[in-house]
Design a binder for these strands. Structure first.
Lengths: 341, 341
DNA sequence: TTGTAGGCGTTATCAT
DNA sequence: ATGATAACGCCTACAA
């Protein structure tokens, strides 16, 4: 349990500490024999280099910081949180880095946590989740030239190392396909206006309609919180207002779509016969409900892995400044949509 | 961006480095005036103590390690993962510690990750998730007297610092209440046999029946993977085998219960009229399905917080060796169960 | 009340 | 091919 240091090994192997250090870094200017000898002693004593001491002299701690404001996960729904963390953790380890995780109960606190990690030198770089309020923070980090990678998109500053999916394209493609299936009067149930994801997904909807030259009906665009209840209420209201004049609900998030599904059920409408429903994110619940919810799936885990990988590259490669990586999405067809008659 | 050190502050404030150090630790043997003077300089230069350097001299890094095997989260379902991490993160921060997160793709790798964190001295203590295969690891840590806290229960070694819920009691209480509602022929849909949670929940079921002197029907106990599909298949089979001789399904996890719900629906059985269903964990989906699933809710986040808190106490208080903290559960009544006629 | 010096465990530079 | 030495940034006796 007591710390075995490089000195202990040196003494035991009857060499100097520097020799041991060289063995650790597998220096090639050291004889095979002493290498073996030292390695044996290391094994025998159970020696492991002290990461802290290393960090101090190397001025690098080999760890990445992940800071998440808790409101973010509420906004983005739970599974996102799980998968993104798993992805980041996996990517981090693959690069032989450690991951420091900090959560914050507000965006305000998020900035503080970030600054704390950075200034106390506990991490070599940061992974951040895009949100509507951390633009300032991101701006500062950019100015300071501090290594970081953004997951998602920040409205104002687009030339930033980040990994994201293309929400605009994903929705546009989905809507285009739905139109080709025969749907025409598509309600768009958006998330809150001030989220970039909301705006992007809505734009995809608009572009698809435009391209298909479908007349645009502003009343079909509706905003709600990213929640089941909000989706349910809004859909109920829409269903009673527009009756026969709608044939599909596009939920900007599965929760919204699930709420709409429930509203349709309550009204006695058959899905997909009377109304089609599609969501976004492929939450676990999407495959559990009945009928199964057609939805758009983001390979979230992969995004996390890519982010970690890119961050390490930024840290280690002097000349590399990062890039924008867009991960393709995929439509998961289930029973809540169908070819129209 | 360049590191401001204690020396810079010292020079600027025209004192010695040790004085600055004393100001940082708010030593009381230092004059108010120099304290102020130094503090001002620190603020002006944007000084933050280097956590790494501190760790090296203090032989303590003020950070906790959380190691999770990814199979664990699959077994325990997603929301658990999210909440436990959030709870641990929150608790860790409240104690002014940092959190290092490592995930592993197997239990084998889990041990390696743990050992790595420990031996390289990157953390002062560990939070571990109980699983059927990490008994050895836990045993070793105990022998080494290394600070750790277990979340959940390890079969073999019970006298261990841990926080858990009482699965036996939770199920027993629920079943007892269900019996008082008029249910009698209760199917128990257990998770895999080798999980401690499975065994405990099953035992709760047994104890309740025993106490109520309900004759025991071994054929009503069934095992399945913790998954929706497994629950669905098993329930379908049970429903066709036992027809009128069952009136409730107790799923050892919500996913199992949700599968059973679906099986009932497929069969055209009304829930709760024809058959009652109850689950465990209160997954988000439990409130989204129709009828809403009655289930047992564990305050997971609080468990995480407690674990972090306790671990810090173990680390910091010489005499404190940890304890067993049992967090009470709560039954969430929804529409899938009802008072029987 | 403040300063000096040595050390935490490692690496890197300069000798040898 | 190996060893001595200084440094990384901080803390803490011990001295003054």
């Amino acid at each position: 349990m007591d710390q075995v240091t490089i000195k202990d090994v040196a003494k035991e192997a009857e060499v100097s500490p520097s020799t041991v250090s060289r063995v650790i870094s597998d220096s090639d200017q050291i004889s095979f024999q002493t290498k073996e000898k030292v390695k044996n002693v290391m094994k025998r004593l159970g020696y492991q280099p002290n990461a802290i001491a290393r960090s101090l002299v190397n001025q690098r701690c080999n760890s990445l910081g992940l800071v998440m404001a808790r409101p973010t996960d509420r906004a983005l729904a739970n599974p996102f949180f799980t998968d993104i963390i798993q992805g980041i953790a996996a990517g981090t380890q693959r690069e032989n880095y450690s991951l420091m995780l900090a959560t914050a109960e507000s965006y305000q606190r998020e900035s503080e946590e970030v600054l704390n990690l950075v200034k106390t030198r506990q991490v070599d770089g940061l992974i951040l989740m895009a949100s509507r309020t951390n633009g300032e923070l991101i701006n500062n980090l950019t100015k300071e030239n501090y290594p970081f990678v953004l997951i998602g998109r920040s409205q104002k500053y687009s030339e930033i190392p980040r990994v994201d999916n293309n929400n605009i394209k994903a929705v546009k493609d989905a809507v285009t396909t739905l139109l080709s299936l025969g749907y025409r009067d598509i309600v768009f149930l958006s998330g809150p206006k001030d989220f970039v994801v909301s705006q992007d997904r809505l734009q995809g909807y608009r572009e698809a309609l435009l391209e298909a030259e479908i007349p645009f009906r502003p009343e079909l665009i509706n905003y709600a919180d990213f929640s089941y209840e909000a989706g349910f209420k809004k859909a109920r209201q829409l269903f009673s207002n527009y009756q026969q004049n709608i044939d599909l609900v596009f939920g900007a998030d599965d929760l919204l779509a699930l709420g709409a599904l429930r509203a349709a059920e309550e009204r006695g409408w058959q899905v997909p016969e009377d109304i089609g429903i599609i969501g976004f994110n492929d939450t676990p619940a999407a495959s559990l409900v009945h009928p199964g919810l057609t939805t758009i799936k983001i390979p979230i885990k992969k995004m996390g892995e890519k982010a970690a990988q890119m961050l390490v590259k930024i840290i280690e490669e002097e000349s590399y400044q990062g890039e924008e990586i867009i991960i393709p999405t995929e439509i998961v067809w289930r029973e809540s949509t169908a070819q129209k008659e």
